[in-house]
Design a protein around this nucleic acid. Structure first.
Lengths: 220, 220
DNA sequence: GATAGTTTCATACAAGTGTTTGAAATGCAA
DNA sequence: TTGCATTTCAAACACTTGTATGAAACTATC
């Protein structure tokens, strides 16, 4: 393999264009024009358009997942195999939020790309996301160890809600800013992380009889 | 206007196909074949493909919004202009969840269509969703009246998280079922509603010093 | 039952898509 | 240099897409 020049030029151009304009209206011709390479180069180097998109997404998401697991492992080792639930949740939602939020003008191309991927959900990306379950199971396991009294159902719901808050906040960050007339500050990412972690922790630790709603569920 | 037959056949066929196969790979030709009408009928009756999609989505979402506001208004009138926060949240997420979850084999076409719309987010639908802010403001107002001691920021974050949990649970219902190996039961919709309402209520009412994470946020 | 307005239909159009092809250029080893 | 594999390139291919057209069929009114 000579120098990868064409290959990485395509990857960079594609990520930039998808980040800026979404998957919907970026064609291979747009990408090769931006990269300054020939149209056939995409199929030569990647096989197909979908495989190009998949490679972009896989690269970024394994980076995020590695970061998540690194934080999780560090926390569990520090706690002798059992980490506080807040720390686990922070390892779960922190990397994603840090990767996608922050001052808009200094958001990396990678971050903007991942936001697009989260909003538009194109087939090759959906396929990859479906394989993420094993990764989530590791977090479910850590949460179970952290909260041995909680039922599996409660653990899964807590996990689900934590991801919900993080992803939805990313997806709808523009709308939240507009709705709150700028009062909700999404540029201080660590504050957002703490808000999400805080609520998810409450969801997971609240006594079953603390609220009418919760007890109603638990009583079934 | 004669009999609307063609027009409503197109609407029904389109909704069914979009619900089953998503927006990505349903063409006008698929729709007219399913509806048993001529290809040109779509442009004659709706102007364009996008306007057809928009009409489908608008119809369904104003129905949901009307139901939400009906519940909200009833609650506020019963409480003399101030409703309990749980009831407000239930009015916010209840209609959507009831419309989109429930036993899979008895989910209406409309429900499956709305799930698709929530997952795929195609341009004409995104445009409509952007106009939903005014509608959400009404809920923000009711929540402020219900919790006069809470800051606007907290209110908006609570609203955001409530919607996050509802929508994410709908979008990822399949994954949650798989992840939890069926332990999280999404068929009993009212239980799901109560879980979401319960967590959102905690998020909105928890004392600022109840958890370390929350106090950290409030201290800024 | 003729007429005007609406609706349907087969067909064509224009444009854009990802992909393939086969030859030309390039790089590299012997 | 020669020979071989890799990479680039322009061009064409094969299709699909949404939309437009103009004639035909229909419907209701007078």
């Amino acid at each position: 393999m000579a120098s990868d020049h064409t290959r990485s030029a395509i990857l960079a151009a594609a990520e930039r264009l998808y980040a800026d304009r979404g998957f919907g209206d970026v064609t291979l011709r747009d990408i090769v024009a931006e990269a300054g390479v020939n149209l056939a180069a995409v199929n030569y180097h990647f096989g197909s358009k979908d495989e190009l998109i998949a490679e972009l997404f896989v690269t970024r998401s394994i980076a995020t997942n590695r970061e998540r697991l690194r934080e999780l492992k560090a926390a569990e080792e520090a706690g002798g195999g059992r980490a506080p639930i807040e720390v686990i949740l922070r390892a779960l939602v922190g990397p994603t939020l840090r990767g996608c939020l922050g001052p808009e003008n200094q958001r990396s191309t990678a971050a903007r790309f991942m936001i697009r991927a989260s909003i538009e959900s194109v087939p090759p990306i959906r396929r990859i996301k479906n394989r993420e379950i094993d990764h989530l199971r590791k977090f479910a396991g850590a949460m179970r160890r952290s909260l041995p009294d909680r039922s599996d159902v409660d653990i899964y719901w807590g996990l689900n809600f934590a991801l919900a808050m993080a992803h939805h906040t990313i997806r709808e960050s523009e709308r939240l800013t507009k709705l709150s007339e700028g009062k909700c500050d999404l540029d201080h990412v660590e504050d957002v992380v703490e808000r999400v972690v805080s609520v998810a922790t409450m969801a997971l630790t609240a006594g079953r009889t603390e609220t009418k709603a919760a007890s109603k569920v638990a009583a079934r």
